[in-house]
Each structure stands twice: as C-alpha cells, then as structure tokens.
Write a protein that binds this DNA or RNA. Structure first.
Lengths: 138, 138
DNA sequence: ATATACCCCGTACCTTAGTACGGGGTCAAA
DNA sequence: TTTGACCCCGTACTAAGGTACGGGGTATAT
C-alpha cells in the first residue's frame, strides 16, 4: 500500500474521473494492477501512463493511437527500429496537419484584412471565395 | 436539373456517404436545397461547402466549428466587424493547434533521435519521460 | 411499359470516449 | 464497533459523427 494509489487517488493525481480509469482498464489501454482483496493498488508509474494518454489526446491522437505510442515503450520485445518507424509516420502526419492549418490561417487572415471597412455588409466580403478557391486546388 | 446534383451525385463528388449529407441537413450544417417534387437538387456550391467541412474536420475542428467558419461568409445580415472578431478567434485557435502539434513533433523527434542504436532493446528508450515532462509544465 | 437504379423518410444501430448509477462490500479513524 | 468515505461490478446513458435498413415512390433508358 505504501507507494501506491487507490483508484480514487490515482484519478485525482491524473485529474481524470475514476470511471475513466476503469474504462481504460476494460478497453485494455492500461492493465489491471495488483489487487489486495478486491481493491486495485496502482504503482506510481500509472500516473505517467495516464498523463501520457491524456497528453496524446490533447494533441490530436485517438485513444488507440495513444495506446500504440505507449506500447512502443512498454513492449520491450520490440526493437527501436519499430519505434522509429511509427514515430516517423506520426511526424509526417503532424507535418501535414501543420501545413494545412497554416493554409487555413492564411485564408482567415486574408478574410480579416479584406474587412477594412468595418461597416461593409458581409455579402461584399470576399473571404468565402478566398476560402473556396483554396479548397479547389487541393 | 442541368448544373445540379442529385444527392447521390453530390455524395460521389464529395466522397462522402449519401446518409452523411442527409445527416448534415438534419443537423442544420447545410441547408436543404431546392426540391423538384420529392428530390433534392444541389447547385455546385454544395460541393465546396462539403469539401470545406470535411477539410475542417481533418484539421481538428468539430462539425459545429466548421459550421461556424462557414457561417463567417454566409450570414450576410452580419457586419464585417463580427466576422473580424470570429475570424481572429479562429486564428488564435489555429495558432494554438499548430503550437501543440509542434511540441508533439519535437517530442517525437527527440524519441527518434534517442533510438540511434537500431538494435537496442526498447526498455531503454526514454519516450515516456519525454512526454510526461511536457505535460507537467502545461 | 417496365425494369432497375436512384430517391424519399423515419428509425435503429454503430464507434469513440467517456459518465452516471445502484446495490453492495471494505477500510480506517474515532 | 460503527460510521463515513471509498471501493467493487455491471449496466445504462451521453454526445458526436455518422452508417444501415426497410418499405415505399420516381426517373429514365430500352
């Protein structure tokens, strides 16, 4: 019990709901820890695991992608090579997303700039066309 | 019906399911087009709208955010002033997304770099710590 | 004029990612 | 030793974003 968390303490430490942890367990995203009687006792590394999952989600990865990333570290029969490949795939994905977001941002900035006359009715605002045009050559 | 699409043709042109289009209509994300009898006939601009929605989703916006973006142009009773504010909010959002993705990318690159010895067992790979550190000062 | 491909509507179902609930068991402090 | 806070499990529900289905109507090419 020392150096370990009940499910409630773990949830608190990770700023998630208790049910979320039970949910992750049911889904195989984290594995069931040691039990003392009917109670789960989590060693501290679970804090890091759950933080990792949450962080990944914040950055646009799904739960199963987050699990995949975690597994890169956890499955020690795997070799760094595997990690490298998966990591590089994710990086490529991220690069594309950044590129697309930047394009979108430019369109929006164009929109903002064209609204110089603050009381011009929106119908005359060329932003949408801007936007649509950018979509066209995609 | 020249120059317009039946729902099936539109779906095909946008590479989405017919049901998706009906779903968007029910949700008020696109508006019902002219009907000839019971059939919907969509003018071409719907292609751009749906592409736009799909694109926005790919970039991490929800359907209702995508709708909001689309509305920047469509509601002509609004004034440029409103558009400007909303546009700026969206730009801020996009900037944050880009920032987060870049952080994620850096972590992943760090991970990739630490796997120099291609046959090193994975247990020695510091990926988890990488991520955790980033979450802490969040 | 008839096949058949397409459309209509409503309803039900699916996946992801949880959250809530209820009836019961347990631990620990007073 | 009892009371309150916490845990157990299973089941049901939510919200977003669709997808599928079934019974019927329609448009069009032959």
């Amino acid at each position: 019990m020392k150096d370990s968390f009940t499910i409630g303490k773990l949830a608190q430490a990770c700023d998630v709901n208790v049910e979320t942890i039970r949910f992750y367990e049911r889904k195989g995203i984290i594995k069931q820890p040691q039990k003392q009687g009917s109670f789960r006792y989590y060693p501290q590394e679970y804090v890091a695991r759950i933080h990792f999952i949450k962080r990944s989600q914040e950055l646009g990865f799904t739960l199963s992608e987050a699990t995949e990333l975690l597994d890169l570290k956890i499955k020690d029969q795997a070799k760094c090579n595997d990690v490298l490949l998966k990591t590089e795939a994710k990086i490529t994905e991220i690069n594309q997303k950044i590129k697309d977001l930047k394009k979108m941002k430019k369109s929006l900035e164009g929109l903002a700039n064209c609204c110089v006359d603050i009381n011009q009715p929106l119908t005359d605002c060329p932003i949408l066309d801007c936007f649509i045009d950018q979509r066209k050559n995609k």
